[in-house]
């Protein structure tokens, strides 16, 4: 069999696709676009607070025991590679988020002026990181950190 028969069009197409996907995956993003929400979880209903997205509330309800989830604050940020952003969620809570590249982030949770925890996580679209704990009156607080697409982050910036 001639050697030339192995260098066929589909073979070269596969090589090109592999090189392309490898190159795309290897290239680090310039910035990480995120949305951070502070959510109050409770079994009581409240008319003074804005409910979160119904679909996301349903997902939270699969794991957490509370029925209602209300948004306390929300922020959209874009963190350049290697940079650190401080996100103030409330008077008692803030996040220091450092983008490590490759969708990896280092998050330091501070409560009441004291560091609570440090997390290194890899964020992915539609795979949020939820930091949570008990609150008063058998309620709970949740800090939801989501990676968003660049176009969605741009829309959020325009909405502001």
């Amino acid at each position: 069999m001639k050697l030339s028969c192995f260098f066929h069009v589909p073979f070269w197409m596969a090589v090109c696709v592999m090189l392309t996907t490898g190159r795309v995956n290897a290239a680090p993003a310039d910035a990480l676009h995120m949305e951070v929400q502070l959510i109050w979880a409770t079994n009581e209903t409240s008319t003074k607070h804005k409910p979160i997205d119904a679909d996301f509330a349903k997902r939270l309800g699969k794991t957490y025991r509370w029925k209602n989830y209300y948004e306390i604050s929300q922020q959209a940020v874009s963190i350049p590679n290697g940079a650190v952003n401080t996100i103030k969620m409330s008077d008692q809570c803030k996040l220091d988020v450092k983008y490590l590249g490759g969708d990896r982030v280092e998050i330091v949770l501070t409560g009441e002026g004291k560091p609570v925890s440090k997390h290194v996580e890899k964020l992915a679209l539609d795979w949020p990181l939820v930091l949570s704990g008990n609150a008063k009156n058998e309620t709970a607080w949740l800090v939801v950190i989501k990676k968003v697409a660049a176009d969605k982050a741009a829309k959020s910036e325009k909405a502001k």
């Binding site: 997902r59 306390i72 409560g111 990181l129 704990g133 609150a135 008063k136 607080w141």
Partner: peptide, 26 residues
Amino acid sequence: QKMTMVWFYDRSGDSQFTESSPLATV
């Protein structure tokens, strides 16, 4: 559900982090 959840709890019972000093003032 495609979520990573971290649940903080008080080991000693007198932590300022939970119950008495919630991160969210509601």
